[in-house]
Design a protein around this nucleic acid. Structure first.
Lengths: 334, 334
DNA sequence: CTCATGGGTTGGACCGTTCCATAAGCCGCC
DNA sequence: GGCGGCTTATGGAACGGTCCAACCCATGAG
């Protein structure tokens, strides 16, 4: 028994395949009894439309490909949620693929999605291969989300406002009376923006003399090492603003190891408001990167771009906000 | 300019579309100069095969759909890695979809994958809708991975041996001299297996009198609450084996809150060896669920089932192992 | 010289839909 | 009775590949 096609349904319902097609797409002007006959035939045969045949004929897939940079670090879940729901409202499905997993295999996911003829492409986070994304973006409406790079022609970027977020974190610490504040930096455009904004904010408050930056790498290990270096300085900082939650957890470990209590002896602020920071045991003050909002806006951008592919690429920023938890406190109080 | 098709390539290379097709599929017996002509035409036109057309004609997609239960809890990353690499070796791509995200939208992903005519289906973790999976499994070779339910006709299950894992954890604690050991249980088949094995192991060591079970729910919050209850008992346990790492982190918080030091006053063992347990700040002793191995075996099962769809469903278990870190210690020592 | 052999290539049917132009049927009106 | 107009249904041509039987053309054997 082959899987049934639209013709099998038609034969069983005693109508033409065209009418079945009309019913499937919910067309007006089909006589109710015929519609019912078709529906029962579909039911009885367990018919399911063939997406390949449909998209071949329709010349679109109603599907959006989402490229994730690394499943291991699920900062993007809220973002996906926003993206997904907005796209779904417009009748688009999303398919995910993880770049990290597939890169080791030498598989180029932009190519896979290109061959699938997805209607749009969303790159979540910084991808390994900007060149592949560039060529894909030449064919498929593309939006980059949750990062600030790469900037490509005809590609929109939607992210949170890192400068604003870093300012929020830094001013929060300054407001608590901290003067010796350190920043654990990360690489890439996002790391750059956050660091610069940290430095600018410190300068605005006349604290450029006591601002310190240590380089991290967005991992726990990097955050740990950077903090160990920070704490061995003659003028030990009383607060650390880490480029992301992961680094912040590393900072937390380093602090405890050297006998410092958080937040009594050292205040910590992370970035991303991942579920890590929400763990009762960590309970980090952090900057929420407005993932849901970013995702929704990205979806809207993509829909616009599918409508009107020619438009030049733009950058759209959502406003992050501070989530104050237990890792920050007034300086010198305990 | 339409996107080029195989016929455009053929015209440009001065050959028939059939020959282009042969070249694309790397067929033998094509004259080298013709092959070269086709390749340059492909290059010049930027031709990309159309997956829909190909799969319509070939009547298969070379694609496997992977259903994830919840991206927020990324215990399955290693597993995906194993799965992916094995499938890729056999020329199959994987597409991911997250059930949690899409369920809210009322989208049935098994249906989406059925319409896509994926060659196989992998359900990672317990899904919300076993009924949908059952009907999908009736059409598409299906394997359930990393969980023990649902058991469906013609569906293989590949997971780690929870009974063995729970035994490892429990005997580790007993070996450290613990007698009053508690278990934070989880729901579902997996929770049941781990709890039963905990109880059996305790019984074998004559410790059924001091074994305690509190119900959790696999979340941090649940682990926290269960531990608070445990610690308020007259006979406080000296060790806790939690059903998963997430619960274990909750237990850790509860312990610290009531002034107990881990592992001096309370030993803790988790399950899954997620990156959470590897965080220096938590550094949990945990049972590794052999994700990579499970993933590879699942891929093999799926490939077998694609070859031979009729076979009845079987359960295959991989051996978990203990990962001793900092959250367990000899009883009474500090 | 004829004919079988076989490597290399090709046209056309087919996969399962959508879409469009056209047909069928019915009604009312002149 | 013929005809225009309207609603509803239909056949056939795409869509872009794969696959297969048939074809072409050297080559070598008989």
């Amino acid at each position: 028994m082959r899987t049934p096609t639209i013709r099998d349904v038609a034969a069983r319902a005693g109508v033409s395949k065209s009418l079945v097609s009309l019913v499937l797409r919910g067309a007006e002007g089909v006589r109710p009894e015929k519609r019912a006959a078709v529906m029962t035939a579909i039911e009885e045969l367990g018919y399911r439309p063939n997406a390949a045949a449909r998209s071949l004929s329709e010349r679109r897939t109603r599907t959006v490909g989402v490229l994730l940079n690394d499943l291991r670090n699920p900062w993007f879940v809220e973002l996906l949620d926003g993206l997904n729901s907005r796209l779904y409202d417009s009748g688009l499905h999303t398919l995910l693929a993880d770049g990290h997993l597939n890169r080791r295999l030498g598989e180029d996911l932009t190519r896979t999605f290109t061959e699938l003829r997805v209607d749009g492409l969303v790159a979540v986070g910084t991808l390994q291969d900007p060149q592949a994304l560039r060529t894909a973006a030449g064919r498929i409406p593309t939006v980059v989300v949750g990062t600030r790079e790469p900037e490509l022609p005809g590609v929109d970027i939607v992210a949170n406002d890192d400068e604003h977020g870093a300012r929020l974190a830094t001013e929060h610490l300054i407001g608590l009376g901290h003067r010796h504040i350190a920043h654990i930096a990360g690489h890439g455009a996002v790391g750059e923006l956050r660091r610069r904004s940290f430095e600018a904010t410190m300068r605005e408050h006349g604290l450029e003399g006591t601002a310190v930056v240590e380089q991290g790498d967005l991992t726990e290990e990097g955050g740990y090492r950077a903090t160990v270096r920070l704490l061995s300085r003659p003028e030990r900082p009383t607060a650390v603003f880490a480029v992301n939650d992961m680094s912040c957890v590393g900072a937390l470990s380093a602090a405890e190891e050297s006998g410092l209590q958080v937040p009594r002896d050292l205040s910590l602020v992370g970035y991303d408001n991942t579920y890590l920071s929400r763990l009762r045991h960590l309970w980090l003050t952090t900057v929420d990167h407005a993932g849901h909002d970013v995702g929704r806006r990205a979806a809207q951008r993509l829909l616009d771009r599918i409508e009107n592919p020619g438009r030049p690429g733009e950058v759209e920023l959502a406003a992050p906000f501070l989530e104050v938890r237990g890792s920050t406190g007034v300086v010198g109080e305990g």
